[in-house]
Design a protein around this nucleic acid. Structure first.
Length: 412
RNA sequence: GGACAGGUGGGUGAGUUGGCUGAAACCACAUCCCUGCUAAGGAUGCGUACUGGUAACGGUACCGAGGGUUCGAAUCCCUCCCUGUCCGCCA
């Protein structure tokens, strides 16, 4: 959620920044108008309440002293009516304000490049050179090793579900353990969290109220399957005031993730790139505002080094404003080389949301004087399924066999 | 799922014949004083959000959430959520 005061005081610069994210000026103007209206209404209401409080006290005193209270009572009853009317108006405006405010995305950092979609993202650097093959490398679904069973995944559930078998199932498990160990050595402590969460939790990180269609909902309950570990892990500290000495909090968590992929009809229907259920090892950090840039770099480095340790060529992309997610102020994507597809594909996305989620989720820390909003960051390190198929494609041999990367052998 | 008991500030925890309690006490924390060595003692301050004011200092709301009764509710009533204990069920 944006800081309403910022909208009131610095309207033009907020509009300017949100233009990068394709948000219209009218929306911000509405926000500003409603917030001002609320202020005015409250200014009307509060003196009445003050008077009511004072007179009610007097009422008690007079009654005790045996004075005549009939006139006072009449006055108070009348005032009560006025308060009640005004109060419901105020509540209405409050609701309008918060439901609008919750749908406005975060402001992009000044360093975020302009652009409309993924084509305008800016490549920062490449790490490792893609392998060369003396044969035509296959796509992962063409490598017949009896590793991935797409048909039976569909039979059990529906399209975009699959089953891992034999070495693949083992490799998936090895990757999860390897990634968690790798991240732990970098100072991220491991947490295991629920895969089913409530509305407040999803609102805290920004998935709700706007993106309910992307989530799997549990029928008959106000509960949802998590689309990423970012949701439960960040919300661990929702409605909490953290003491300054505990920061930064650096966590890593393995979870399954569930997404409806509602907006992705027809995209990546082949293979395991885009599934309704996938495994991911996530990094989440809670920091003081002044530390979040440094921690962001650490997270990018962690995920990138993890890929390097697996021998996977990849590149760093700075997302442009138009491709930035709802909650993110800045995002770096890591794309890994897929020889079969002959292109780089996203395997990790690291974002600094600054105080956007912290304001929604009321995550604060106590610095010696005041309570301040923290900064929250999240990033994949890494998407496990995509890492698995990246290994398949990059480590395939002419005879169709797949080599296991050196660092994983002890995990198999 | 059933029965009973509860949900108060960063924490523990008073306050339930409605008014003088936004909330005692203790702990934690901050500043200062004393003392001087692996510690202790004393003083003061200290809930959150919004809002008026240059400031001093005020106002409003908040005692799990939402409604209700009342001139007035942490205190009474209703609904929901959560926690504990016992029972039932079960990896």
């Amino acid at each position: 959620m944006l800081d309403i005061k910022l909208i009131q005081n610095d309207f033009d610069s907020v509009c300017e920044k949100l233009r990068k994210k394709k948000v219209s000026e009218e929306t911000i103007e509405d926000l500003r108008k409603i917030s001002l209206e609320l202020k005015t209404k409250r200014a009307l209401l509060e003196p009445l309440q003050a008077e009511q409080n004072a007179s009610s006290k007097l009422f008690g005193v007079w009654a005790k002293e045996g004075k005549d209270i009939n006139e006072l009572k009449e006055k108070l009853s009348l005032n009560k009516q006025k308060i009640s009317t005004l109060n419901s108006e105020v509540k209405e405006i409050e609701n309008a304000l918060s439901s609008l405010a919750l749908t406005v995305p975060n402001l992009p950092d000044d360093t975020v490049p302009n652009g409309v979609d993924e084509n305008d993202n800016v490549e920062i650097k490449r790490v490792l050179t893609p392998p060369s093959f003396d044969f035509e490398p296959k796509e992962h679904w063409e490598i017949s090793q009896n590793w991935i069973d797409f048909q039976r995944g569909v039979k059990l559930s529906k399209s975009r579900f699959s089953v891992l078998k034999n070495e693949a199932a083992k490799l998936e498990r090895a990757l999860i353990n390897y990634m968690l160990d790798f991240n732990t050595k970098r100072g991220f402590s491991e947490v295991a969290v629920p895969y089913i969460v409530n509305r407040e939790t999803l609102q805290g990180t920004g998935q709700l109220p706007k993106f309910e269609d992307d989530l799997f909902k549990i029928e008959g309950e106000e509960l949802f399957l998590i689309p990423t570990a970012e949701v439960p892990v960040t919300n661990l500290f929702r409605d909490e005031i953290i003491s300054e000495s505990e920061l930064p909090i650096k966590m890593t968590s393995y979870t399954a993730c569930f997404r409806k992929e509602a907006g992705s009809a027809g995209r990546d229907t082949r293979g395991m790139i885009r599934q309704h259920q996938f495994d991911k090892v996530e990094l989440v950090c809670i920091t003081k505002p002044q530390d979040s840039d440094k921690i962001f770099d650490e997270m990018v480095e962690c995920a990138s080094d993890l890929l390097t340790s697996l021998g996977l060529a990849h590149r760093h992309l700075m997302l442009c404003g138009g491709d930035l997610g709802f909650s993110a102020a800045k995002t770096v994507d890591l794309e890994v080389w897929f020889p079969g597809q002959n292109r780089y594909r996203e395997i990790s996305s690291i974002s600094n949301t600054r105080d956007f989620q912290a304001r929604r989720a009321k995550i604060r820390y106590k610095d010696s004087k005041k309570n301040r909003l923290v900064h929250t960051l999240n990033g994949s390190s890494l998407a496990v399924g995509r890492t698995l198929i990246a290994i398949m494609e990059n480590y395939q041999k002419k005879d169709g066999s797949i080599e296991i990367p050196e660092v994983l052998k002890s995990y198999m």
